[in-house]
Design a protein around this nucleic acid. Structure first.
Length: 492
RNA sequence: CGGGAAGUAGCGCAGGCCGGUAGCGCAUCUGGUUUGGGACCAGGGGGUCGCAGGUUCGAAUCCUGUCUUCCCGACCA
């Protein structure tokens, strides 16, 4: 039991850390707040990235790449955005090191190599991108511009957590330019739908689509749309955002175009992003006390085959049959591994692949060879069955689909059970304290009330759900009239 | 950035008060026996005790600084 993990009930935070580290997704590094994404974790990210990238391209977007560094003067051009990020920016001030005359073998920053203008390491790329778009846009014929970039960004966080909040992280940021407000809003909403589609159908994680309150809005945006997911400890996690930026960046960077009537107007903008934080959401939403549970569609490994040898003579027979299976699975597009490592016995391997969350395990021994069967075990339920080796690829394919659906259904049920409608302040506090999850309540629409509720309960408005219907009511806190319910929760 | 805890072999830990040159379990290597839920026997290897200073004849141990991580808080489009 050298890899025993902390149980959720014992220490939820430690459980999460154990899964990430011992499950082989990531490791700590020598740099404060920065992690190493290990091969298993990076393969997961690649699978997510590839699926998203295809969805972006299917909706007309293309990839490009902009610089890591943003000159300070550009960064500060859109004031609200700059202010919002100012406290967490890494800044490059020098461009050279030299030998330290006082210390042999050591280097020091060369004071003579100070930059004329400091470079901000991008916390997001609106500034450098809009400064570029200015040169690309003259007429309505140049619009829309639909660009996405896959990149790393840096936000100097005080308190970091693997995947959930690190100083450097990987993400994609879409930046689009449009001729009309309506078109930009449609784009914002379209990408929100793309995110919800991806997170629900690929990551098996149900989300609530909504709009952020003013307090929670992206600095520099007119409206911030979001998808919110619920973790097993009852805390919410923002899984993706899509911003309608209005003409704020166009005005800040003077990006104008001539419309069909030959009138000059500022361009309308959007930006949208999801990050490696989604991996944190995946871990916290699905996993159990035995380890990770990967949704089959993005699992780095979908099937692992564990041989169970019995005596010398069984090895070549089992290995031969396993090789056939691997070939068949690969031909069927299934990600498979045959683990014939002889250092570890079957029981050890079972535990190891459960820790890593591989959806389907196949055990194959002499008995199976004799009967023409294999033993299938599914990770999500632990259920085992003995099935015929004939038609195994079809069987496993269907099982992978079933597992994908089952873990989504499980998460959905948990989420739905944890959206609680409340109408009194007492009830509101009680639910947040004991039941946790989303609380659906009336709110008077003011930032002051939101702030007070946050101070008293640590809960924030996660979003104003897009599908909520108008309903007369009274604000849970102030008693003032309200027209619709919003979702509160404690959040990551 | 404030409060608390930790850092000794790849991993988990003991030793520290009371200073004398480092130990246990797992992992690893060799050989053998094994394999349907974390194998067993025998033998072997591996550590500038996070890093840098200081005190001392002598520092894992005492002192100072610093780095990294964890927990709580503040902060977090």
């Amino acid at each position: 039991m050298s890899k025993a993990i902390t149980s959720r009930s014992e220490d939820y935070s430690q459980w999460y850390n154990d899964l990430v580290i011992k499950g082989g997704l990531a490791d700590y590094s020598a740099v404060r707040g920065c992690m190493v994404i290990k091969p298993y974790g990076f393969t997961l990210w690649e699978n997510m990235r590839d699926a998203l990238d295809k969805m972006f391209k299917d909706t007309g977007h293309t990839n490009a790449y902009f610089p890591l560094f943003v000159p300070k003067s550009l960064f500060e051009a859109e004031e609200k955005n700059a202010e919002g990020f100012a406290k967490e920016c890494a800044v490059v001030t020098h461009y050279r090191l030299k030998s330290d005359p006082d210390k042999k073998g050591a280097l020091m920053v060369d004071p003579e190599a100070k930059l004329e203008e400091e470079l901000v390491v991008r916390p997001t790329s609106e500034a450098i991108i809009w400064n570029t778009y200015k040169n690309w846009i003259q007429s309505y014929r140049d619009l829309p511009i639909l660009i996405n970039q896959w990149a790393n960004v840096v936000r100097w966080e005080m308190r970091t957590r693997l995947f959930l909040r690190t100083a450097e992280f990987l993400w994609q940021e879409g930046h689009t330019a449009h001729a009309t407000k309506e078109e930009a809003i449609a784009e914002t909403r379209q990408m929100l739908d793309v995110y919800a589609d991806f997170v629900e159908n690929w990551m098996a994680l149900p989300v609530v689509k909504g709009v952020k309150s003013e307090n929670e809005r992206f600095a520099g945006a007119e409206d911030t749309y979001c998808i919110e997911a619920l973790m097993q400890d009852g805390k919410a996690l923002q899984a993706g955002t899509s911003h309608f930026l209005g003409q704020n960046f166009a005005k800040a960077f003077d990006v104008k175009f001539s419309d069909k009537e030959n009138k000059l107007d500022y361009v309308w903008a959007t930006s949208w992003g999801v990050s490696t934080r989604l991996i944190g959401a995946l871990v916290m939403a699905h996993s159990d006390d035995k380890g990770l549970i990967m949704p089959p569609r993005i699992a780095p490994l979908q099937v692992v085959i564990v041989p169970i040898y019995k005596g010398e003579e069984s090895k070549p027979v089992i290995d031969g049959k396993a090789a056939e299976l691997v070939k068949a699975f690969k031909a069927a597009g299934i990600r498979v591994k045959f683990d014939d490592n002889d250092n570890n016995r079957p029981g050890w391997k079972f535990a190891e692949y459960e820790l890593k969350g591989v959806p389907v395990r196949i055990a194959m021994g002499a008995r199976d060879i004799e009967n023409g069967t294999v033993e299938l075990a599914r990770r999500d339920t632990g259920e085992k069955s003995v099935v015929s080796i004939d038609g195994i690829t079809e069987h496993v394919n269907q099982l992978l689909l079933d597992i994908q659906q089952a873990i989504y259904d499980k998460a959905l049920q948990f989420r739905n059970e944890h959206i609680t409608k409340v109408d009194t302040w007492e009830e509101f506090q009680e639910v947040l304290k004991n039941k946790t999850g989303f609380v659906s309540a009336h709110w008077d629409g003011t930032g002051e009330t939101e702030q007070k509720i946050k101070e008293l309960t640590k809960a924030t408005i996660r979003c104003i759900p897009l599908d909520s219907t108008e309903e007369e009511g009274k604000c849970i806190f102030s008693g003032k009239p309200s027209k619709q319910r919003v979702l509160f929760a404690q959040a990551y």
